[in-house]
Design a binder for these strands. Structure first.
Length: 823
RNA sequence: GCUGGAGUGGUGGAAUGGCAUACACGCCAGUCUCAAAAACUGGUGGGGUCACACCCGUGAGGGUUCAACUCCCUCCUCCAGCACCA
């Protein structure tokens, strides 16, 4: 058994001492910026971290040995609620607790032997970092991208704070179980919607992002093209705009529905016999939280408003309904209902006995009777009952009707988006203070740049009573107006932590820079991130926000970079996409479930390090599954990895290095040489493609081969094995490298290259098929002629029963692989 | 419902038109040992046979091809994200 503990500690110190991972811009080498998503400092790393960071570390060490100038930084996403909860529970302060956690976590990361440039470490909770959050916020404010408006939020009356949708569990607060209310509050937003076109369009340039992440982002932005149609009230001039993507069904509209929150609800029902019931219904529905409303599916509730409007396409009079299945947040908050061609409208119409009319005929079938329909037909077909558009294919009619509506001004072609502006206000202490002051005289005033950072007060009270502790710190809240010097009040909302992580990759380029968030020269050199690695859970928000920030900073000319100048493909990067390549690693499961505290199925990485060492853990986690797939934890697998490393270690005893053996020079093995070069080729390609599991398998094969050939000269084979293994198990590799007589770190050794000439075979085994079935194998020289081959095959005893004297129809030769005889 | 992905031995997985199951785990047998562990050697998809031969086999069914885990069509199951999105 090799003494992993000693070896690992030794080399971790050595790397640090030699500063092997300290990056500097501008060497003659090509740059490579490798980044893994930085962790929240919980105090302990978990297997998810180990997997994420091990994958990154392999790539980093591989690129270093290939001669790249590698930037591989690490930091901590340190703001967030857990620190406040800990402060309340343990009678401590969030910053003390957080810094303690960071220390513990940093120590654990170091024990894994990751190749980070620790001189660049950042924590978002340090004023030296969040000062620049405030700086960027002010820049956005100046451009009108940061603004305040009233928003409907989830509010916990007992904690006195807003809750994210994820924090609302079954209509109650996740922390105190109080019933969550809907409340309108003044909140800060970022106008990400200004960038919706760019954010959607540029997804096309991200050719090295996983398909599913692109799909998720695209869905989230949610572009849909359609027509806004104006429905006039029957006896008044009031107009209800309605949005539809199915304008081809306009002649099938039989009623109109308004969302309960729609501003016209009161006006429309005013003076009708239904007025009272309508108001009662609206009051009831709007009281329910959004969470509850969207959860109860199927059952659609609604009520007739008492009013009517005119369908502008055919001047039909349609009743106006109010129903909870129409959402105020999407489109215009009003729809035209086409029960024959929309399933939701269909169900509602059946329930309330409303009219229905087919306007799209299913191709190849007879015109159907409405009463026979069991569900709405939502597909394409031929227009019927549609006036001048009859008998057109519905796809074509969609375009024609839209144009006709534009021309006659009864509608307007429009595009709707799902993406909303980003709510960044949090009524919490442990976050970046929003640098705004409210003055009775001057209104909303920004904190001057020279007054940044607005620092968090150290002595805020953490009582557990709820509410934002910042509100209780008088010295923080009561300030002088920067403009008129009169007394004013400071904003106490802090920023959502997603703000912090939306530009940290830029800060890493110049972590100590004090003139701006980042040094433009440094970002110009290092950006974009060549390879980004992290969990799929950040596929939407974090990545979208980071893309938004990068585009904004580029537009402000604060950030300028280009992949083209650095030899990257031109189409990959227009200087406003932060991450060139993205890898989303799979989760680590145990017994088929995600490892989590509540399930009690956590395996602590530290316990594995103690028992088998970091190298074993690294090797196992890489070998068990391809990086992007979820992997099942297995104790047996760990033991297998450990066994393999010991087997590799024992190779030292068999070489002339290490143990000073001075026997006669051993013979060269051609077979082994071939295997060496084949393995170099495979491993290099596999690491390039992040196929670490097969790369390791290939090295295992090489090791097996060495043991088969112990009587030959294995020195070269062992040397190559150690080099190929070094990105995966760096400590063991360094120690063996040194024992093999090398003076410098293996990281300074150039990555081995295979030589094509050793891969060429003189004699190969050809697979012989008859009618596509394997029947024989023969050994032939590589350069055998087809005629000669045919001769050999016809002479093969094993093939005779299959060929007999049947005529040969076809004779297919796949060079150096197989022959298929078709009879 | 929409979008994306997956389905291969007892298990994790490999092969993306050309020998299905590389590599590893597990299991079985053996060597060493008083014994055990470690290490090493051999075997290990199913059927069939004394043994070979041979047949079957990558979720199901069809198709393209000399040849399909791989490409096309239809369907099933599972996972993930989004969703009264008009």
């Amino acid at each position: 058994m090799y003494s992993f503990k000693e070896i690992e500690e030794k080399w971790q110190q050595e790397w640090l001492k030699q500063g092997l991972f300290c990056a500097q811009a501008g060497s003659g080498k090509k740059k490579y910026y490798l980044l893994e998503m930085f962790p929240y400092p919980s105090g302990k790393i978990h297997m998810g971290h180990v997997r994420n960071y091990t994958i990154g570390d392999v790539a980093a060490r591989f690129k270093i040995m290939q001669g790249y100038n590698v930037l591989h930084p690490m930091g901590f996403d340190a703001f967030g609620q857990p620190a406040e909860n800990a402060a309340i529970k343990n009678k401590t302060k969030p910053d003390i607790w957080t810094h303690k956690c960071i220390e513990l976590m940093r120590a654990e990361l170091k024990k894994m032997g990751f190749s980070y440039d620790w001189k660049r470490e950042i924590s978002t909770c340090d004023a030296g970092y969040y000062k620049w959050n405030q700086w960027i916020f002010l820049k956005m404010f100046e451009r009108g991208l940061a603004y305040r408006k009233a928003a409907n939020v989830n509010w916990c009356p007992s904690c006195q704070t807003t809750l994210a949708n994820e924090e609302v569990i079954e209509d109650s607060c996740w922390r105190c179980s109080a019933k969550v209310e809907q409340k309108d509050l003044e909140q800060w937003f970022l106008k990400i919607t200004d960038y919706k076109e760019k954010l959607l369009e540029d997804l096309k340039t991200l050719k090295h992002w996983p398909e599913r992440v692109l799909a998720m982002q695209s869905n989230w932005i949610g572009k849909s093209q359609g027509v806004q149609i104006y429905f006039r009230l029957k006896d008044r001039d009031t107009v209800i705009p309605v949005f539809t993507t199915r304008v081809d069904t306009i002649f099938g509209a039989t009623y109109i529905v308004l969302a309960p929150e729609h501003p016209l609800v009161k006006e429309v029902s005013k003076g009708t016999p239904q007025e009272k019931q309508v108001l009662k219904f609206v009051a009831k529905v709007t009281k329910e939280s959004r969470v509850v409303r969207s959860k109860k599916d199927v059952k659609k509730e609604g009520i007739f408003s008492g009013a009517y409007c005119i369908n502008p396409a055919n001047n039909e009079v349609l009743p106006i309904w109010i129903a909870d299945y129409v959402l105020m947040e999407y489109g215009t908050g009003a729809i035209m209902a086409v029960p024959a061609h929309d399933q939701r409208d269909f169900l509602f119409a059946k329930e309330h006995k409303l009219a229905m009319r087919i306007v799209i005929q299913v191709p190849g079938t007879e015109y159907r009777v409405q009463s026979q329909m069991l569900e709405a037909y939502e597909g394409d077909g031929i227009q019927v009952n549609s006036g001048q558009f009859n008998s057109l294919p519905s796809q074509e009619a969609k375009i024609k009707i839209a144009q006709w509506m534009e021309n006659t001004k009864i509608g307007k072609i429009e595009t709707h988006w799902r993406l909303r502006d980003w709510l960044i206000s949090r009524q919490r202490y442990w976050g970046t203070p929003i640098p705004i002051i409210y003055c009775a005289k001057c209104g909303t005033v920004t904190v001057p740049y020279e007054d940044l950072p607005v620092e968090l007060p150290k002595d805020a009270p953490f009582t557990g009573e709820g509410g934002n502790p910042l509100n209780k710190v008088k010295e923080f809240v009561n300030v002088k107006c920067p403009k008129c010097k009169g007394s004013a009040r400071r904003e106490t909302d802090t920023m959502a932590t997603f703000f912090d992580s939306s530009w940290y990759f830029l800060r890493f380029c110049s972590p100590k820079f004090d003139q701006a968030p980042f040094d433009k020269k440094e970002t110009g050199y290092w950006m974009p991130v060549d390879q980004y690695i992290g969990g799929i859970e950040h596929a939407i928000l974090h990545l979208l926000y980071s893309r938004f920030f990068t585009k904004f900073l580029r537009d402000e000319r604060l950030l300028e970079f280009s992949a083209k100048n650095l030899g990257g493909p031109a189409d990959l990067c227009g200087g406003d996409e932060p991450f060139l390549k993205l890898l989303t690693q799979g989760m680590v499961l145990k017994d088929g479930e995600v490892m989590s505290k509540s399930r009690g199925n956590i395996v602590d990485p530290d316990s594995i390090i103690k028992k088998h060492g970091a190298d074993t853990l690294r090797l196992y986690i890489l070998f068990a599954a391809p990086p992007e797939v979820e992997m099942e934890w297995s104790e047996r697998g760990i033991e297998g990895a450990f066994r393999f490393l010991n087997r590799v270690w024992r190779l030292l005893e068999s070489t002339e290095y290490g143990v000073q053996s001075t026997g006669p020079k051993k013979k060269d093995s051609e077979k082994l040489r071939k295997k060496i070069h084949k393995t170099i080729k495979e491993v290099t390609e596999d690491i390039d493609n992040f196929k670490f599991n097969t790369a390791i398998a290939a090295i295992m094969e090489l090791v097996n081969e060495i043991y088969q050939d112990l009587n030959a000269d294995i020195a070269e084979a062992v040397k190559v094995t150690v080099m190929l293994l070094s990105p995966f198990v760096p400590h063991l590799a360094e120690e063996m490298w040194q024992k093999l007589g090398n003076k410098e770190s293996i990281l300074k050794a150039p990555w081995p290259k295979h030589d094509e000439k050793f891969l060429q075979e003189k004699v190969i085994t050809l697979v012989i098929q008859v009618n596509g079935k394997l029947r024989s194998k023969i050994e032939v020289p590589v350069d055998i002629s087809e005629d000669k081959l045919k001769e050999l095959i016809l002479a093969d005893e094993r093939l005779k029963p299959w060929i007999q004297d049947k005529p040969i129809k076809n004779f297919i030769v796949v060079p150096q692989k197989l022959v298929n005889v078709v009879v």
